[in-house]
Structure formats: C-alpha cells, structure tokens
Amino acid sequence: KELVLVLYDYQEKSPREVTVKKGDILTLLNSTNKDAWKVEVDDRQGFIPAAYLKKL
C-alpha cells in the first residue's frame, strides 16, 4: 500500500472529506484525480486536496 505525508492541516468541508493534521502519515487509496486524493484516516475514507499531500 502507498503512504502519503500530510503537509498542512486540513479541515473537512464536506462529508466526503476527512480532517488531517500536518505530519500525519496516511494510507493512499486513490490518486487518479489530480485535485483530490482519497485516503484512509482512522477507519474513515475520504478526500483531501492533493496539494496537501506528498507521496512517500
């Protein structure tokens, strides 16, 4: 599985998104959309803007 590093805090703005903190390391589920990547956070799945993430 692929991991990503969170570069900036992000507060979810819709039910399809998830809230993350800078420095979190998350499982990347889908990065086919260049604008928003799907990740898993504490058994929740949701989207975060790709600009907030860096592949490890």
Rank of each mutant, 00 (worst) to 15 (best):
K54T: 11
W37E: 01
S31C: 14
K1M: 11
K54V: 13
Q45K: 09
E12M: 15
W37G: 00
L26W: 04
T32I: 09
G46E: 09
D35I: 11
N30S: 13
V18T: 04
F47M: 08
V6M: 02
V4R: 00
L56Q: 03
L56Y: 07
E12D: 06
D43K: 11
V41Q: 07
D9A: 05
E12K: 14
P15C: 09
A51L: 11
L29M: 06
G46F: 15
I25W: 03
N30D: 15
L7P: 00
A51I: 13
K13Q: 13
S31R: 05
L26F: 03
K13E: 07
V6D: 01
D42C: 11
V39I: 08
Q45H: 09
V18Y: 04
N33I: 06
N33P: 06
E17N: 07
E12Q: 14
V39G: 00
L7A: 02
Y8L: 10
E2P: 11
V18K: 02
K38M: 15
G23E: 01
K38I: 15
E40G: 08
Y52A: 13
Y8K: 13
D42F: 10
D24I: 05
W37N: 02
Q11K: 12
F47N: 04
G46C: 13
S31Q: 08
V18E: 01
K21S: 09
I25K: 04
V4A: 07
T32D: 15
V39D: 00
F47Y: 15
L26H: 05
T19K: 06
E12W: 10
L7W: 03
Y8A: 14
K21M: 08
D24Y: 07
K13A: 10
I48M: 11
G46D: 03
L53V: 09
K1T: 12
L29R: 02
T27Q: 10
Y10V: 02
T19S: 14
D42L: 11
K54D: 08
P15K: 09
D35P: 03
K22L: 05
S14D: 12
V39E: 00
K34H: 11
E17R: 06
K55M: 10
D42S: 11
V41S: 09
W37D: 01
E40N: 05
N30A: 10
D35N: 12
D9I: 03
V41A: 09
S14E: 09
V20P: 02
D35C: 14
T19R: 06
L56R: 00
D9T: 04
E17S: 07
V18P: 02
A50G: 08
L29F: 03
L28D: 00
T27H: 10
T32C: 14
Q45C: 11
G46T: 11
E12S: 15
L29N: 02
N30G: 07
T19A: 05
N30E: 15
V6T: 02
D35G: 10
L56F: 08
K55Q: 08
V18W: 08
K34V: 12
K34F: 09
N33E: 11
K13M: 11
K38D: 04
A36K: 12
E2K: 10
K54L: 12
K13L: 10
A51M: 13
K34P: 15
A36Q: 14
K38H: 13
E12F: 12
Y8W: 12
Q45S: 11
N30L: 09
L56G: 01
D24M: 15
A51D: 14
R16C: 15
L53M: 04
D9N: 08
D43Y: 08
F47S: 05
I48C: 07
E17C: 08
I48Q: 01
D35V: 10
I48W: 02
Y8C: 15
E2S: 12
I25N: 00
L53K: 01
A50F: 03
D43Q: 11
N30Q: 10
L3E: 05
Y10M: 01
L28A: 02
K38S: 08
D9M: 03
F47E: 07
G23Q: 03
L3M: 11
E40Y: 06
D35T: 11
W37T: 01
S31T: 09
N33H: 10
P15Q: 09
T32V: 10
Q45P: 07
S31E: 11
T27I: 15
Y10N: 02
R16N: 15
D9P: 04
E40P: 01
L53R: 01
Y52N: 12
S14G: 12
L7F: 02
E40H: 06
V18M: 13
A36L: 15
T27Y: 11
K21A: 07
L56E: 03
Y10D: 01
Y8F: 13
T19E: 03
A36I: 15
D43H: 11
L28C: 08
E2T: 12
I48V: 15
Y52P: 03
V18C: 07
K21E: 04
D24G: 04
D43F: 10
D42V: 09
